[in-house]
């Protein structure tokens, strides 16, 4: 092969870096499309039940911890900013700034997961879970308002499945960001190959954007509910 004259980051089966980057970009956008459909199934199902059982969903939503969710939203939005700054650093060839920005992003993502963990612990402690562990006080509250406790549990199913899958995506994202950090530290992300950072950032922004839909759907649905 005549790869000797080419950039060391050019993979052998591509003609040039332009083609390689075009493939990588198109590939990640297509992957994002699959992710949107993956969550789209959940959003569609949620929307259906939300329309069918609006009052149960409001009541169940009002028991979630909105303060922690707001803090988490701030963490994720900020992490998207530092991720974008990382692309800029990579483009300009500023290795130190690149590594710094990536590490801040990973730290914010980890903070999100820690807060989420405390929130889950609180929910479990208060028996705000569907199934056999469902708290009797929630049951009685629903009955006293003339609502069906089974549908409160249905909301909680969505809450745990949606935030759980989103959390798994965050963990994968942390892994990817740390991998790019490692590559940057080794010096294998020269400015002409900044698209590696861009691709991880596109994934990260999607995870962030999904949270921006989860937050109002799950936490703010019952914001007007009085106890």
């Amino acid at each position: 092969m005549s790869a000797s004259t080419h950039s060391p980051v050019l993979k052998h089966h591509f003609e040039d870096l332009g083609q390689q980057h075009a493939c990588e970009r198109l590939g990640i956008w297509m992957f994002l499309a699959t992710e949107i459909l993956f969550f789209g199934g959940l959003f569609g199902a949620y929307a259906m039940y939300r329309i069918w059982y609006p009052h149960e969903f409001e009541l169940a939503s009002s028991h979630l911890n909105r303060t922690l969710a707001t803090i988490n939203t701030i963490f994720l939005i900020t992490s998207s900013l530092t991720m974008t700054l990382a692309i800029r650093s990579a483009k300009l060839g500023q290795r130190g700034a690149l590594i710094g920005n990536l590490l801040i992003t990973a730290a914010l993502a980890t903070a999100f997961m820690v807060v989420k963990g405390f929130e889950y612990a609180e929910d479990f402690h208060e028996q705000l879970v569907p199934g056999p562990g469902f708290g009797t006080h929630y049951h009685q509250e629903a009955v006293s308002r003339g609502l069906d406790p089974a549908k409160i549990q249905l909301f909680l199913c969505f809450y745990y499945v949606m935030t759980g899958i989103h959390g798994i995506h965050i963990l994968v994202g942390i892994g990817c960001i740390l991998w790019v950090t490692w590559e940057a530290w080794r010096g294998t992300i020269p400015p002409e190959n900044y698209s590696t950072v861009e691709i991880v950032s596109l994934y990260w922004h999607l995870v962030d954007a999904i949270w921006l839909f989860l937050m109002p759907l799950l936490y703010l649905a019952g914001a007007g509910m009085k106890h």
Binding site: G41, G44, A45, Y49, G131, Q153, L154
Partner: peptide, 19 residues
Amino acid sequence: GVGIFDPTIGGDPILFQHM
């Protein structure tokens, strides 16, 4: 033992068929 298509907690099996 919990679920979104489970009619005992208000879920809809037809939704599964659609999805």
